[in-house]
């Protein structure tokens, strides 16, 4: 019976997934400074630091790529023109992306 219970717990454990988090991204462009500020808010802000991001123009050409720093609420990078889009992606799993349309 004890082994059966442990097996059931094992099956339950395989279903459950406790680790989830939110990511809220804000992108702004400073025309005077020719720079882009990316802010990342999360219930686990450390996760922001696991990401890199591409800034792209309207033709989907990459303008610049940078890493989001750990322990910071935002980062600023130089960018010669206003980007049309940002792709924010996990360094370890580049397929895991967030896309932000820059308005």
């Amino acid at each position: 019976m004890k082994k059966l219970l442990l097996l059931c717990l094992l099956v339950y454990r395989l279903f459950a997934h406790p680790v989830s988090y939110t990511i809220d991204l804000h992108v702004s462009y400073n025309e005077n400074e020719k720079s882009v500020t990316v802010a990342c808010e999360s219930d686990s802000r450390n996760k922001c630091g696991l990401h890199d991001f591409h800034l792209l123009n309207a033709k989907d050409e990459t303008l610049t790529t940078a890493s989001f720093p750990f322990m910071k609420p935002n980062t600023t990078v130089a960018c010669s023109e206003k980007p049309a889009k940002m792709i924010f992606y996990l360094r370890q799993i580049p397929e895991h992306t967030y896309t932000v349309i820059v308005e």
């Binding site: 997934h17 406790p18 680790v19 989830s20 988090y21 219930d43 686990s44 802000r45 450390n46 996760k47 696991l50 322990m71 996990l90 360094r91 370890q92 799993i93």
Partner: peptide, 26 residues
Amino acid sequence: GTLYSAYTLQNVQSVFAIETQKSNYD
């Protein structure tokens, strides 16, 4: 980063000054 494990900081001792940023997962 693969989201499979959650690490909770229970205690830290350091010979240097530290600033802590923690959540339920990391």
